[in-house]
Write a protein that binds this DNA or RNA. Structure first.
Lengths: 213, 213
DNA sequence: AATTATCCATATCGATCGATACGAAACCTG
DNA sequence: CAGGTTTCGTATCGATCGATATGGATAATT
């Protein structure tokens, strides 16, 4: 679990595993799991196949580590937005605008790795597709949790279905990911996010937790 | 261009090309272009490789024909909704609810082939990915056209950006496609669609776009 | 019946896929 | 330095990829 293993002896590595993992992550992000070949990884990571396999076990493990790294380095905006001490509307606004920015970063592949990584897969890669779906479902569940808290404090109507609304918001983010992949600019994604926000039920008319922010 | 070619002599086909194309389409729909192997196609279509290549040239041509067939047989709801003689809001409502149904048909793969077919692709399959993006862009353009017509007749505020709103709606549909792929039921997709409709600017209060709220 | 054209079935093709065997090289421990 | 351990570079593995060569079979045309 620790990436700074103790070298109990033996020849030291001639490369930086984190840099190599970054290169792999970007390649998977751009081309998806199956369409990214070892030859492409070899070139992008600057490593020989034995180096890759010694450091990352196999292609599937490498991809899973790339997913973890992506989660840590590229989409911190999500947890940040959902846990910020702001109103529910503001939290959702930050979430969607954060996605607009994260899905269209210059020099990075468009969209979200969790969407592009393996939306369709061969039977052999079904486990990878399932893993990505798990990430997407977790994102939706995190949104639902935030909405439920917002409803509990009066930010949202008591009758609102948090699951349904979370599915809408997660769907919008997934759609933004595809629009980003199709070349949408950060400004266009921001407009999309703002438009999506208009579906939020009016807020502020009633709240049990009065001046929250 | 005619699928009932003239048999100017020679041994007749022992299979129905349309049935075979249907099988291929469903396989591409489920697994995407690259992850669908000839071995899978061979089994699903019930044909030998020479039969496939004789009838459909190669894998890429087969996929493009599957795209055309998909467009003709599975997503007629879109053109239908956008060309129906109803209000703009009703047209968009039919579009989104039609997508909810089309993306979750029992016995068919979830989501839209135009999204799942090749969201990420290897460099060799870039042409296929571009083709699918062209289909998606065309859908968005068709929505924008409908919105522009709606705005012209006062269904929508004069200041509304049809391009921006079309990008939102196309994004929502793309997101619905992914939600469907993640197992969302037709009811859940309908709720998502209804939620997305709430972002539509109010209609009917003004025809000349006078009191813009 | 002879000719011509197309399709069918079998057996594979070369290229690429992900993954390794092997032995030399480079570090720690004793 | 000797022993142990790990990574290095080179070469290549078997499996699968998309795609075909080949020759017999079946039809319309002459």
């Amino acid at each position: 679990m620790d990436n700074s293993e103790k070298p109990r002896g033996g020849r030291p590595r001639a490369f930086d595993p984190d840099r190599a993992l970054d290169a792999a992550m970007h390649l998977f992000w751009e081309h998806g799991y199956e369409a990214t070949s070892l030859a492409m990884l070899r070139e992008a990571m600057g490593l020989t196949p034995p180096q890759i396999y010694n450091a990352f076990t196999d292609k599937e493990t490498l991809f899973r580590k790339a997913l973890t790294r992506y989660h840590q380095t590229e989409i911190g905006f999500a947890l940040e937005a959902l846990s910020a001490p702001v109103s529910t509307r503001e939290a959702i606004r930050r979430l969607l605008l954060g996605a607009a920015e994260a899905y269209s970063r210059p020099g990075k592949p468009g969209g979200c790795l969790f969407v592009s990584g393996a939306l369709a897969a061969s039977p052999q890669a079904q486990a990878i597709a399932d893993e990505l779906r798990t990430y997407r479902k977790a994102s939706e569940a995190a949104i639902a949790d935030r909405l439920a808290r917002g409803r509990a404090v009066g930010d949202l109507p008591a009758g609102l279905s948090v699951e349904g609304f979370a599915k809408y918001l997660a769907g919008v983010m997934n759609g933004m990911s595809i629009q980003a992949r199709d070349g949408a600019s950060v400004e266009e994604l921001r407009v999309l996010a703002q438009t999506a926000l208009a579906a939020l039920p009016a807020e502020g008319q009633n709240q049990a937790a009065s001046s929250k922010e």
